[in-house]
Simulated assay, not measured.
Amino acid sequence: MVHYGSVVDAPLVREPRHAPVAQLIRAGIVEGVHYGSVVVLGADGEVEFQLGDIEAAFYPRSALKPLQAAAMVRAGLPLDGELLSLAAASHSGEERHLAGTRRILELARLAESDLRNVPDMPLDPVVRDAWVREGRTPSRLAQNCSGKHAAMLWTAKLNGWSLDDYLDPAHPLQQAIAEIVEDLTGRRVAQVTVDGCGAPLFSVSLHGLARAASRLLTAGPGTPEARVADAMREHAEMASGSGRDVAALMRAVPGLLAKDGFEGVQVAALPDGRAVAVKIADGASRARVPVAAAALARAGVDPGLLTEFAGEPLLGGGKPVGAVRAVPALDPLVLSASA
Rank of each mutant, 00 (worst) to 15 (best):
P254V: 12
D230Q: 09
R233H: 08
A231L: 14
A229C: 10
A231Y: 02
A239P: 08
L249V: 11
A252S: 11
S242A: 14
L249N: 03
L256F: 00
D245Q: 13
V253R: 01
V228A: 08
S240N: 07
K259N: 10
S240M: 06
L256E: 00
L249R: 01
A229K: 04
V228I: 05
V253N: 04
G243T: 14
S240P: 04
L256C: 04
H235I: 15
A239W: 09
A236D: 07
E237V: 14
L256W: 03
G241D: 12
S242C: 15
L257Y: 01
H235S: 13
V246L: 01
M238E: 05
V246T: 08
A252H: 06
G241T: 05
A248N: 02
A258T: 04
V228M: 03
G255C: 10
A247G: 11
M238G: 03
S242H: 12
A229R: 04
L257K: 00
A247S: 12
A258P: 03
A248V: 04
L257A: 05
S240G: 06
A252I: 07
A248Y: 03
M250E: 11
R227M: 15
V228E: 05
V228Q: 03
A248S: 10
V253E: 06
M232I: 14
E237K: 09
A252G: 09
S240K: 00
M232V: 14
S242W: 09
M250T: 00
A229P: 10
G241P: 09
S242Y: 10
L249Y: 05
A236H: 05
L257P: 03
A236Q: 02
K259L: 12
A229Q: 09
A236L: 12
M238R: 02
E234R: 06
H235Y: 08
R227E: 15
M232Y: 02
H235P: 13
